[in-house]
């Protein structure tokens, strides 16, 4: 497998803040690679460095083997970007946006028209082809931004929170498209706050916090490694906590509830029901969200 993206000790320093602190990662061709982390973790800054719009201040970052500071044009020519905020051009129609964008890549007009029509079909915006972008819903705009990012037939697609604020239908359509693109060999890099999305889409992911990568791996492996298969939850009361301590069961406090990570779900559940309380105990499969909260804490981020 070819390495599409490689960061070594990558660093971004703003005047007095270290936004990205010497991170290392590799992304292979055709992978869907996720960046997870609370607000201010350094995800978007990392995305912007990969997009060659925010120069790195230290370390090494190569896209298709090319240094981002030296070869931005070459890299951007084969990259598609879906930014966090939609930046469609309201002075143009749906198809007009695609045609206009194709000019930025020096795509000949005939070819551009052909691709624009194919892409409009791909993201299911046929009915809106000649509408002004102001008339599109949030989900439609997002699909159009995705289509726009594909106009240059990119080999690498970067999406910064592509499904934030979308309804489930629109979200599923985006997921389906990303899976499809990835199966065609396009490398996809994505940031998201939705753990379910990351678990479904990403082949591998990193969890970042305070400018550093905390962990890296396949979603399932991470869940297994950091939380286990299942979680037993009970109410967060002094009574239960003393009882758990008496029985030598390790627990973690998650606001309103206590969580027990253990291999033997049924044993633990039965034990708690027998020794501590009569009801209010649930066992559920562990998720990426549990890993995320365990690693980055429950404190609110500004």
């Amino acid at each position: 497998m070819n390495i599409v993206l490689e960061a070594k000790n990558l660093e971004k320093k703003f005047s007095d803040v270290l936004a990205v602190n010497k991170i290392n990662f590799k992304v292979k061709e055709g992978e869907v690679f996720g960046f997870l982390g609370p607000n201010g973790a350094g995800k978007t800054t990392t995305m912007k460095m990969i997009q060659c719009v925010s120069p790195k201040t230290g370390g090494d970052l190569r896209v298709f083997g090319l240094d981002v500071n030296q070869y931005p044009k070459e890299i951007k020519q084969v990259m598609g970007v879906v930014p966090q905020m939609d930046n469609l051009d309201p002075d143009f129609t749906v198809i007009g946006n695609l045609i206009q964008f194709s000019r930025y890549f020096d795509i000949p007009l005939e070819e551009a028209k052909k691709r624009a029509n194919e892409l409009i079909d791909y993201v299911q915006l046929n009915d809106k082809k000649d509408s002004s972008v102001d008339k599109l819903s949030g989900g439609m705009k997002r699909r159009l931004v995705l289509a726009r990012a594909m106009i240059n037939n990119p080999k690498l697609l970067i999406l910064d929170e592509p499904t934030t604020g979308l309804d489930p239908q629109a979200r599923h359509l985006i997921w389906e498209k990303l899976k499809d693109l990835s199966s065609k060999g396009i490398t996809v890099i994505i940031t998201t706050h939705y753990m379910e999305e990351a678990a479904r889409l990403c082949d591998r992911l990193v969890i970042m916090d305070n400018g550093e990568i905390l962990v890296e791996g396949k979603p399932k492996d991470l869940v297994k490694k950091y939380v286990g298969d299942h979680i037993v939850e009970a109410e967060n009361t002094t009574e239960i906590k003393t009882c758990l301590e008496k029985n030598d069961i390790k627990y973690e406090i998650a606001n309103e509830s206590v969580e027990i990570y253990n291999e033997n779900v049924s044993d633990i559940t039965n034990l708690i029901l027998k020794e501590c309380v009569d009801s209010g105990v649930t066992a559920r499969p562990a998720t990426l969200e549990d890993v995320f909260l365990k690693l980055t804490g429950r404190k609110l981020r500004e």
Partner: peptide, 14 residues
């Protein structure tokens, strides 16, 4: 407001 410049610099335009 329109972020047109941001959109353009994500393409080969500097």
């Amino acid at each position: 407001y329109l972020k047109t410049f941001d959109a353009m610099i994500s393409t080969p335009i500097s």
